[in-house]
Amino acid sequence: MHRFKDLEIWKSSRKFCSEIYNITSNFPDSEKFGLTNQLRRASVSVPSNIAEGCSRSSNKDFSRFLEIAIGSIYEIETQLLISFDLGYINQVKLDELCFNLDRIVKMTSKFRSSLI
């Protein structure tokens, strides 16, 4: 078992989640149940799945939760691209967020490969 609070992937994804909450607070009210909700739910899913995976008794189970977290990251990236298309975020912010997502994916993938 791993202590999720000690994992850099959990710390980074938790920080990213907070950033998503801050950014989506500026989205139009009409997106409250659309992109705002979807982005927030997907971003919460990443550190949550990492934490839940830590509780599993086998590395295989933990690896599966990391795989789910990576899937949520790609969901977030898609939703951010749509947010950009709709003019809710600018290119600079999109690039910054996608860079951070890519870093989290790489860290998570590398950690996941060490479990197998």
Score class of each variant (00 low, 15 high):
Phe65Gln: 07
Ile9Gln: 10
Glu31Val: 06
Ile104Gln: 04
Gly53Met: 09
Glu77Thr: 12
Asp61Leu: 05
Lys5Tyr: 07
Ser72Trp: 06
Gln79Thr: 06
Arg56Lys: 14
Asn26Leu: 12
Arg14Tyr: 13
Ile70Gln: 14
Ile116Asn: 11
Thr24Trp: 11
Lys93Phe: 00
Asn22Pro: 00
Cys17His: 11
Pro28Cys: 07
Glu75Gln: 12
Thr36Arg: 13
Ile116Met: 10
Ile89Asn: 03
Ile68Asp: 05
Lys110Met: 02
Asp6Val: 04
Thr108Asn: 03
Glu77Pro: 06
Ile73Trp: 10
Asn100Glu: 15
Glu52Cys: 09
Ala42Met: 08
Ser43Gly: 00
Met107Ser: 12
Glu52Ala: 06
Ile68Gln: 03
Gly87Tyr: 03
Leu35Ile: 15
Phe65Thr: 00
Arg41Pro: 09
Arg103Ile: 09
Ser30Tyr: 05
Asp29Leu: 04
Ile104Leu: 03
Leu94Arg: 11
Asn26Lys: 14
Lys15Ile: 14
Ile73Glu: 06
Lys93Pro: 05
Asp102Gln: 09
Thr36His: 01
Phe84Asn: 14
Gly71Leu: 13
Asp29Arg: 05
Ser63Ala: 15
Lys11Ser: 06
Glu8Thr: 15
Ser58Gln: 00
Met107Leu: 11
Leu39Ser: 07
Phe84Cys: 03
Arg41Cys: 13
Ile76Tyr: 04
Leu115Phe: 02
Phe99Gly: 03
Leu35Cys: 07
Val46Gly: 01
Arg56Phe: 00
Phe16His: 08
Thr24Ala: 12
Phe99His: 10
Ile76Ala: 04
Lys106Ile: 11
Tyr74Lys: 07
Arg40Tyr: 00
Met107Thr: 04
Asp85Glu: 14
Ile9Ala: 04
Glu52Pro: 00
Ser18Phe: 09
Arg56Pro: 02
Asp102Phe: 08
Tyr21Met: 02
Leu39Lys: 02
Glu19Arg: 08
Ile104Thr: 09
Asn49Ser: 05
Thr78Gly: 11
Asp95Met: 02
Leu94His: 09
